[in-house]
Amino acid sequence: MTTDRFDVRRRIAAAPDKIFAVLSAPSGHVAIDSSGMLQSAEGDPVRAAGEEFIVHMDRESLNDYPLGKYDVTVIITRFEQDALIEWTISGQVQPPMRHIYGYQLEPVPGGTLVTSYYDWSEIDERYREAGIFPVIPEAGLRATLGILARTVE
């Protein structure tokens, strides 16, 4: 059986607003990235769906697809302050791939249950046939949650 989505969870000993501050800041995405692809970012913290920022990427860290260094525009698709942030990207590869990443935050005693998800169910068939998805493995999402915990706890 195959899947087009990963969901991973981790309880983090920090309040949702503290975690969300990292997730809504372009520099926060770079700080917690476990893949090594995100090099730096430009832009202000996002505050609503439709907002965007730029991330400077280096695909060589994955050594899987010869893109080298490039920029992507992160486009926020869903936003609920301190509870949910989701985005897709647009960049040099066109049409856009239509894969999404997101975080849901749920207050729990002593912290927050953070769900990280990656969904590539809407990608164009040409990308599916190329065999490059998922770009990030489930273990990468788990590792990023570990870095997020280390950053905010």
Rank of each mutant, 00 (worst) to 15 (best):
I89S: 08
Y117T: 06
G43D: 13
A41E: 07
G68P: 10
D64N: 13
V93S: 08
W87C: 04
S34G: 14
A15P: 05
V72E: 15
Y127G: 07
R9Q: 12
D71W: 10
S24D: 11
I76G: 02
Y70K: 04
D44A: 15
D82W: 01
R10N: 13
A13G: 10
P109M: 01
E42F: 09
A83R: 15
S40D: 14
T115C: 01
A48P: 04
R98I: 03
T112W: 01
L113W: 01
S61K: 13
T73M: 09
T115G: 01
I19D: 00
D124C: 02
G36N: 10
G131T: 09
L84Y: 04
W120Q: 09
T112N: 01
H56R: 14
P96H: 07
R10S: 12
G50E: 06
I32N: 04
D17S: 13
T115H: 00
G28C: 06
V93P: 02
S116C: 04
W120P: 07
Q92W: 01
I32L: 06
E86G: 05
D82A: 11
L62K: 12
G131F: 10
Q39D: 13
F20P: 09
I32R: 06
I132E: 14
Q104W: 00
V114C: 00
G111Q: 04
E80G: 06
A83I: 02
Y117A: 03
E125D: 09
V72Y: 03
I32H: 03
R47D: 00
P109T: 03
Q104N: 09
R78S: 13
P107I: 02
G111E: 00
E52A: 14
F53D: 06
R98E: 10
P16V: 10
G36A: 11
I132A: 11
D33E: 11
M57G: 03
I76Q: 01
A15D: 12
D64M: 12
D82M: 03
P96E: 05
W87I: 02
I85L: 11
L105M: 02
I76F: 05
D33M: 08
G110K: 05
S40M: 04
H56E: 03
G102D: 01
A83T: 08
R128M: 05
R9Y: 11
E129F: 09
E51V: 12
E106V: 11
D44F: 11
K69A: 13
E106R: 15
G43L: 13
R128T: 03
A25W: 06
A49Y: 03
E106H: 10
S35D: 09
M97G: 15
P96V: 08
Y65G: 00
A48Q: 14
V46E: 10
I12F: 07
S121A: 11
P66M: 12
D58L: 06
D17A: 15
P107N: 00
G68Y: 07
D33N: 10
V22C: 03
E42V: 14
M97S: 15
I19W: 00
D44V: 10
D71H: 14
M97L: 06
T73Q: 13
Y127H: 10
Y65V: 14
D17H: 07
A14H: 06
K69S: 12
F79C: 09
T112S: 06
K69E: 15
A48T: 12
A83F: 02
H99E: 13
I76S: 04
R78W: 09
H29W: 11
V93L: 15
L67P: 00
L113E: 14
D17L: 03
A21D: 15
Y103M: 01
